[in-house]
Design a protein around this nucleic acid. Structure first.
Lengths: 415, 415
DNA sequence: CTTAGTTCGTTTACCGTCCCAACTAAAGAC
DNA sequence: GTCTTTAGTTGGGACGGTAAACGAACTAAG
């Protein structure tokens, strides 16, 4: 392949192009077309993409050699020569995503077509401030996952780890409040623990990965401007703008939970006052909706689930106090989303995590608050929806990230 | 040239690549290298970019044919064969940027190397709600500018209009509160008024263009994550993230002035309460710093200049009331910038417009507020600086935008 | 002055990729 | 059975980047 990145970009530094780049780009074009339009024929691809029929034939041959694409039969009952239908060949490859969170580890594997191969979840007694143990557990899960996939005859194309915290470009976790981590080089440690595996291993913020999953696997698939809000122990935003993840200069973009709303507001776990999280975080929601939960009691992450289930149950039975609490929470959330909408103008904000199941009660209040606080008419077109994915969104996003790299032209070598 | 965009991208839709794209990419690589490293030789370019010497020769010949590059003499007193030095040829082309604002029109033209060819400013008695007249005045200015450049033997490569308001992707101004505009198709009207000129004509938000100017011409040249804040009648943010303008789904990103801070805050011109603009906008600054200016009096944009000069004079003479007012303003600005920093994590926030001259007094307070409210340590690396450009930043950015298109590979045809 | 060494830029041959047009292939339509 | 229609392949041509060899133009040193 070419000199550096295999796809031509319009970025800053001089990045010359050669034929290998053209080839990689066009292979990726065919692959992406097949992902969204499969099954279809070579002629279809040529007509839709504008590539020449001969070029498509050559590209498809190449993709079949790499076992990325498979022929699956022919069209029938149509005038003219029958077409050979093509699909992505899921079978020989797998993309892996892992998530580490305060109280669980998750592993998800997808095949090339985005079909879920496995989805494991493991309770995890948070080893606060003990990154070593957590990484060992993560490595064990990774090994089990990779081994299962290898046993099924699949080659792992890459592995991405989701971490709820600030992750820099080199895979170092600068800060993960929920885990009690600071400056932990997860990528390096995990690479060592796995014995320098051959596939690419990356570490990324959980919200960033969740938004990738939502873009590819959720209802918003294909959206170019999209935000995902995690509703876990903290509130993070994964932002896709113009089809690209927004990371910021140091990779710290999307710190939604600690948006400073009101310097005189309630105390936040981060030591400041008036953070959005203090208004709309899971802890705030529970305390507001369930008066029985003492203010003084520190909530442990493992208690969130039962409490949230209880809130949902009460909301379903139209408990007035809970409904009012959710309306208030939705309003605060809408306030934060309005800030987001004014700055980023996404087409859609997806409520994830614990927000997902409460979405029916949160969204009306949030939407009206958003409308009231948007500079642009019609909220600038931003809508708020519930996530279509479950709590494995971040892990699924980790696998998605691997697939995105394939789609961008980083194809696996023929053998 | 190729099928669509002339540069290969990794974007969503299938965008096949062919030879023309490779050529355009490499021509642009040479051009960009020459822009930043001129004067230099063919051999330098080949060594630095990684392109083959023969390829560079071919590319340079092409660029010389297009009159984009010029040979400018030889190296001396060096061992080995002397090298022919190359520079960008500024002379045959020009890029034009126009700005319309509440009380003035501006025209700026740059040559290919970014040197300023002309810089015109014209007082403009705001024709509120009369877009027709404003566009006629704009067209007249455009005609004069283009005619002057043509008279100097220059070909206009493109023209971009900066408008202080929400501009969609088609050049329609959805809303420009300061101008009293709503749904004005500036691009179409101006194209008609200019008789469908041959060069590309675009309309863009003023803050978006100013940040482009800051990136290319200002102190932050080359930065990939950068925000520019306009300090005019309203506060807009132009955001560059990962080397690209952040526009949002409908092009409405960067509505910084109407960030909703406090629902119980002071009334804002937009009809809401507690917008950042109501705390840190020019009007708020003037009223806070100059008690003589009555609260009831509506400030007209043409009064801003004298008032701000007065504030600056008083600040220089250490007037305690003005210093306190600026510190308070800087704090509010820092609050807003903290929100920005938490969501976008830029490397740098540039204070433009009227903020520029007050920056020495605003920045300390803003920086400490930013530090106090940032989730990431060290404010996530975000620093606040004063703009190095004058009030023509947006217009200069319009011209810059044209140069960016050239740098991205959209070269003018040989004749 | 001559020779060696260095660097620049071009020339030449080559290769890979895409495009076009012509071709073969395989079905239904009449 | 022939014609029409559509699918996919083949061969030729063009283009552009690569590599190595070459001539050009200079300095350094004997």
């Amino acid at each position: 392949m070419g000199r550096g990145s295999s796809v031509l970009t319009r970025e800053n530094g001089p990045q010359p192009a050669d034929f290998a780049d053209v080839r990689a780009t066009n292979l990726a074009v065919v692959l992406r077309h097949l992902r969204t339009h499969a099954p279809c024929s070579r002629a279809d691809i040529a007509a839709t993409t504008g590539l020449n029929k001969a070029t498509v034939s050559s590209l498809v041959t190449d993709l079949i050699d790499r076992r990325l694409v498979r022929e699956v039969g022919m069209t029938e009952n149509r005038i003219g020569r029958p077409a050979v239908m093509l699909v992505l060949d899921g079978s020989p490859y797998a993309a892996v995503g892992l998530e580490i969170n305060t109280d669980y580890l998750t592993a998800v594997a997808l095949d090339l077509a985005g079909e879920r191969l496995l989805s494991w979840r493991r309770a995890f007694t948070g080893t606060a401030g003990q990154p070593g143990q957590a990484i060992a557990a993560l490595a064990a899960l990774a090994r089990r996952t990779v081994s299962k996939l290898s046993h099924d005859g699949r080659r792992v194309l890459g592995l991405t780890v989701a971490v709820p915290g600030l992750v820099d470009a080199d895979g170092v976790v600068e800060l993960a409040a929920g885990l009690g981590w600071q400056r932990v080089d997860v990528r390096k440690s995990l690479l060592a623990a796995l014995g320098e595996p051959g596939y690419p291993l990356l570490v990324e913020n959980d919200a960033n990965l969740a938004v990738l999953a939502e873009q590819r696997l959720g209802d918003q698939s294909g959206a170019g401007d999209l935000v995902y809000l995690t509703g876990g122990a903290s509130i993070g935003a994964g932002i896709i703008s113009d089809f690209r993840l927004l990371r910021g200069a140091r990779g710290f973009a999307g710190e939604f939970g600690h948006l400073p709303l009101d310097p005189a507001g309630p105390a936040c776990g981060c030591g400041r006052r008036g953070c959005l999280e203090a208004y709309a975080g899971v802890g705030a929601v529970i305390r507001r909706a369930l008066p029985d939960v003492g203010i003084e009691t520190a909530l442990s992450p493992s208690e969130f689930g039962p409490h949230m289930d209880e809130i949902q149950r009460l909301a379903k039975s139209d408990d007035p106090h809970v409904l009012a609490a959710l309306t208030e929470t939705g309003g605060h959330l809408g306030h934060g989303i309005a800030i987001l909408a004014n700055l980023i103008n996404p087409a859609c904000v997806v409520l994830g995590g614990y927000f997902t199941e409460l979405a029916p009660w949160l969204i009306p209040a949030a939407s009206s608050e958003l409308a009231a606080r948007s500079a642009a008419a019609d909220s600038g077109g931003t809508i708020i929806v519930a996530s279509a994915l479950d709590s494995s969104a971040a892990a699924a996003g980790g696998a998605t990230r691997v697939l995105d790299a394939i789609d961008a032209g980083l194809l696996p070598t023929p053998r």
